[in-house]
Simulated assay, not measured.
Amino acid sequence: MSSSQSDVQRRLLSAATRLFAEQGFDRTSVSQIVEAAGVTKGAMYHYFRSKDDLLYEVYARVLREQTRRMETFAASDEPVGDRLHAIAADVVVSTIANLDDTTIFFQSMHRLAPDTRAAVRRQRRRYHERFRGLIEEGQRSGEFRADKPAEVIVDFFFGAVHHLGFWYRPSGELSAREVGDHFADLLLDSLRPTAG
């Protein structure tokens, strides 16, 4: 979570995430959130205009951190395959680390106001476009196969990432890092040029 966020913001987001996960977005009231966070409604409205804003921020803070980390990996001097592997593994690990946040958001995104929903889609699209750019870089250099559209590869990969909330359990046999490495390995294996 951003160090620039106040303690009140952190408490509100933590309480909202827990309550949205336990009882759903629709059944959670602002009164319940502020009571669980131990703040006043006035304090909440100082930072968030509505419950919708809280839902938006639950996911947006994760996406901002994932984007920051992706840009760090993408800017390195490593070969494109290594950069893409690092980013692919990282997005899985960070999604698992924030599984409640991402699951809640995707389950409740349709409840957001249209302009807020559109803003999230734009932010996520920018992330996906940067990811696609690395695939296209590898396709141009010959490191990756070029017979599959990069856009389809991106959709295929992120479809699997967004599905993590349905099956991943922290108590399972695989750690988040292991799952991330498996996802990244599968992605890179699928991008290797085919013989002939």
Rank of each mutant, 00 (worst) to 15 (best):
Q5F: 13
D7N: 07
L13G: 02
A15V: 12
A15P: 00
T17K: 09
A21V: 09
R27I: 06
T28I: 05
V30S: 09
S31T: 13
I33S: 01
A37M: 05
A37I: 05
K41H: 15
A43R: 05
Y45T: 14
H46S: 15
Y47F: 08
R49L: 15
S50F: 10
D52C: 11
E57K: 03
E57V: 01
V58G: 00
R61L: 07
R61W: 08
L63S: 12
E65T: 09
E71Q: 10
F73T: 08
A75G: 09
S76W: 07
P79D: 05
H85F: 13
I87Y: 01
A88R: 00
A89N: 04
D90G: 11
V93K: 01
I96W: 03
I96V: 12
T102H: 04
T103P: 03
I104N: 04
F105H: 08
M109P: 14
T116H: 08
A118P: 10
A119E: 15
R122F: 04
Q123C: 11
R124M: 14
R130L: 15
L134E: 04
L134G: 03
I135T: 06
E136S: 06
E137A: 02
S141I: 06
E143A: 01
P149S: 15
P149Q: 14
A150W: 02
F158A: 08
G159L: 10
F166D: 12
F166Q: 13
W167Y: 10
S171H: 11
L174H: 07
L174K: 07
L174N: 03
S175R: 13
A176S: 14
R177G: 02
V179N: 04
G180H: 03
L186T: 07
D189Y: 00
L191C: 03
T194S: 15
